[in-house]
């Protein structure tokens, strides 16, 4: 029903209704959702980096088209209808229109997605870093960005790099064995 009225493809994943739309109609779709379908509540916005070059975490089992997927979830505040909108963006210079004009609550999440994935939200009134310092270079949630702290030091327990506390590496007391024996 939602897909028909906004012009996209609907897909149901484990109780989550996901509607794929084109990036050009991004703002129109959300305006329609808010005004015609009464989905006034903006739940969240984020992105997924579909990539074959993975520096942190597991690789995918099959090759995928390299792309960004931008997701929003909106709902109503009466019956509990909830829809996830999704669109795909190219891997090179991804950009999409900002939703701040439709849902004010998208403001910080667009800034977060901008700094974490490098996706530009055109028309955002204040597209600057949210969590990271202004001087930070890189987009940490891209799959090509390594988790540096784990490169420097592996997960505790993965490799026992340190000596056990009970057994110091070099024995302090002189050996009781006769060296000439």
């Amino acid at each position: 029903m939602v897909a028909g009225s906004v012009g996209g493809e609907a897909d149901i994943h484990f109780d989550t209704v996901k509607v794929s739309v084109s990036p050009d109609s991004w703002v129109d779709v959300h305006t329609k959702a808010r005004d015609d379908l009464d989905l006034v509540f903006f739940s969240w916005l984020s992105a997924i980096h579909w990539s074959n070059d993975v520096q942190a975490g597991d690789s995918l089992n099959e090759e995928v088209d390299e792309r960004f997927e931008v997701l929003t979830t909106v709902g109503d505040l009466t019956e509990g209808r909830r829809v996830t909108f999704s669109t795909r963006l190219p891997i090179d210079s991804p950009s999409i229109a900002s939703l701040v004009g439709v849902y004010t609550g998208a403001d910080w999440h667009e800034r977060e997605t901008y700094e974490m994935f490098g996706i530009v939200f055109e028309g955002h009134p204040n597209l600057v870093h949210l969590y990271l310092p202004e001087s930070f270079i890189g987009n940490p949630l891209r799959k090509s960005y390594p988790l540096l702290s784990r490169e420097v030091k592996p997960w505790p327990g993965t490799v026992d790099v340190e000596a056990m506390p009970e057994k110091p590496e070099a024995p302090e007391e002189p050996s009781t064995e006769n060296p000439e024996a």
Binding site: I48, G57, L60, N61, T73
Partner: peptide, 21 residues
Amino acid sequence: GELGCYLVADGGPMPWRMHTR
């Protein structure tokens, strides 16, 4: 308030993406 978890699995033992609302 609404605390949500958006989880994307790729068939492996680790999530491909986890987003917390």
